[in-house]
Design a protein around this nucleic acid. Structure first.
Lengths: 354, 354
DNA sequence: TGTTAGCACTCTCCGCAGGTGAGTGCTAAC
DNA sequence: GTTAGCACTCACCTGCGGAGAGTGCTAACA
């Protein structure tokens, strides 16, 4: 980073800004004219030559302008993150998008991805919260039809899952309720994994209905294993608007990556405890995204589970804008998921005002 | 359709087959050589000229080969549907894809879309079942936290929705259970709309807990209004593999159409009671899909609700293949959604074998 | 010593030929 | 009715030259 004085930095900044806007290699004349630097193109040229030597600029071919390298974006972004001036006004925009009432966690996640993509004009990915295993609060069996019951498990972070299991057909509502009470008392406060272990101990108390336990155990162990977050994607087609993806093959491989949700989730998932992660070009570690950048942020629920929101765009992304939008969105989601046991947007507020 | 003899039809068929395979305008020589017709290219040429006059063939420019018109595909498909020889062996392939156990309706729909797209190499859309309003079987309130309860409504076609509503904090499990029993008895067999109407009549029986009714009413009326089917899309990027979408703008508008699920649903949704619908090119009525075809089929649940599955591809789609795959998939889904109140793939089978 | 004007040079992009080849329509012979 | 032959038409490819943008270098200037 040595050899980098104040003026060089300002020029680099100008080049990045211009390139982010136009996606066209930027020449010395452009800088000296459009960005008032009080310097002639020749001087700029010299500086640019230096910047290229330092690795901040690339030249597609001899007689083209320069484009910022990944290193340049990195510098730019680091600067941005340090100077912490991102909050800005985008909170409003984010907020206004969420007034439509959504209920299920999956819906919120999908909706968030749509909002994020339409605000940024890039591709957005939202992962539902994961993390520490939720603890069981209530287990309830509801009779569905003769010989089948619905199992609903409520945890401190919302409904885990519901499933239908077969039950002895002679069981009536009240018996199911009694069993539910018993199960709830025995397993309250356990994580799913703990519950699976504890289930065998309950056999004698169940009497003839022990088949229920088998099914419940199956269900629980699957629920505890299957901790894949839900993945919402929005604005996949936005990417095609950018000239860097005018190549069909590139576009196709990018889009098909977006379709394999598991892989996508593992790429986007943010590791560590930082507020933001910015991965530029090769830093993504994904060949399909070698000229993309991924910006992610986390949000968290009141029970400490963490989710990730991310924006994928060309390396010449409007980082500052994106970071500020992500920041707002993260706050919104945190708030949303922290009321009412991660089952957001319930009727409370609206009904109160009626 | 007059002026169309047996031989012309065979030639037309050959042209369509070849064009479906290659996407390149097909010339008279190709037909006479690749497809053994015992005719010289000159004869074919004459016939092709006739076919063009009849409107079955188009010529991109004077000295190019011919390509089938929408009218030709229409004829081809009608023929295919009449001769009812589509069942074939693809059922196996479809079946084998579904052994992975899925549970929630949404998951099944998404999975079906993925399977469908990977089998056909086109873009697939699957709509969850809609139709006659489901009837309430059970209503259950489950205590979630102090002052909040989870409402689970089981209908004859599965769980409608669950939501958290506020309840008076002093209510304990048993009271909630009693209320649940009361609600179930009063509303059993109602459709959601009927239930909304009947709720006011229950006020006196609830005593001090009537706020619950307000929230329940809100929830029900929303559930009955919000009859949008879930839309699963698979293989969006497949479309980019076909030369007809090598134009970026076309591709983008197509993909962004796929992203607006509501619009997509209304396009794909099949009207009428026929087993299959094939809409070719302009017949789709959607500018973005003017050179696509949409093939849809329906599946239905044991409670008579209908869902739609569809494949979107270029007009030169492999109709025969697609129709047979759709047919299998439709059967699979019908079967899947008819066991266990539309909560498919439950533990029954697996547990029995353990 | 830093800045600037000027100039030669490079390389992409674009439009314009000309050649090639696939395919047609027509005519005449079988 | 079928086929061989032939002239004709375009799309596509390739190579070429000019225009324009941008650079690097050198020399002059403050």
């Amino acid at each position: 980073m040595s050899g980098m004085d104040e003026r060089k930095f300002r020029i680099l900044q100008a080049i990045i800004d211009d390139y982010i806007l136009t996606a066209v290699p930027v020449g010395s004349r452009t800088i000296s004219k459009k960005y008032e630097m009080g310097l002639s193109s020749a001087t700029i040229r010299n500086e640019m030559s230096d910047l290229e030597e330092l690795g901040y600029l690339d030249q597609p071919h001899v007689s083209a302008g320069r484009i910022p390298s990944a290193k340049a974006y990195r510098l730019y972004v680091d600067q941005l993150l340090q100077s912490g001036k991102l909050q800005s006004g985008s909170t409003q925009a984010v907020q206004s998008y969420f007034d439509s009432r959504t209920r299920q966690m999956e819906e919120v996640v999908d909706q968030a991805a749509r909002v994020l993509s339409s605000l940024t004009k890039y591709t957005a990915v939202v992962l539902s919260p994961t993390g520490s295993q939720p603890r069981i609060q209530t287990i309830q069996l509801v009779s569905v039809s003769h010989g089948h019951a619905l199992v609903v498990i409520v945890t401190d972070s919302g409904i885990v899952r519901d499933t239908v299991i077969p039950v002895p057909p002679q069981l009536d509502h009240d018996t199911l309720y009694a069993i539910s009470r018993m199960l709830t008392e025995s397993l309250h406060g356990c994580t799913l994994t703990e519950a699976v272990q504890r289930i065998p101990l309950l056999t004698e108390r169940m009497g003839e209905n022990e088949t229920i336990l088998t099914h419940l155990g199956d269900f629980l162990s699957e629920g505890s294993a299957n901790r894949k977050p839900h993945v919402g994607v929005g604005g996949a087609s936005n990417m095609l608007s950018y000239p860097e993806y005018s190549d069909m093959d590139k576009a196709r491989s990018f889009l098909s990556l977006l379709e394999t949700r598991d892989k996508l989730a593992s790429i986007v998932q943010q590791q560590g405890d930082v507020a933001f992660t910015v991965r530029i070009g090769p830093e993504t570690g994904v060949p399909e995204m070698s000229d993309c950048s991924i910006v992610t942020a986390t949000y968290s629920t009141h029970s400490g589970r963490q989710g990730t929101i991310g924006v994928i765009g060309p390396t010449r992304m409007q980082y500052s804008r994106v970071l500020s939008i992500l920041s707002s969105m993260g706050q919104q989601l945190s708030a949303l998921f922290s009321q009412d046991a991660e089952t957001p947007g319930d009727n409370t507020k609206r009904s109160d005002s009626e």
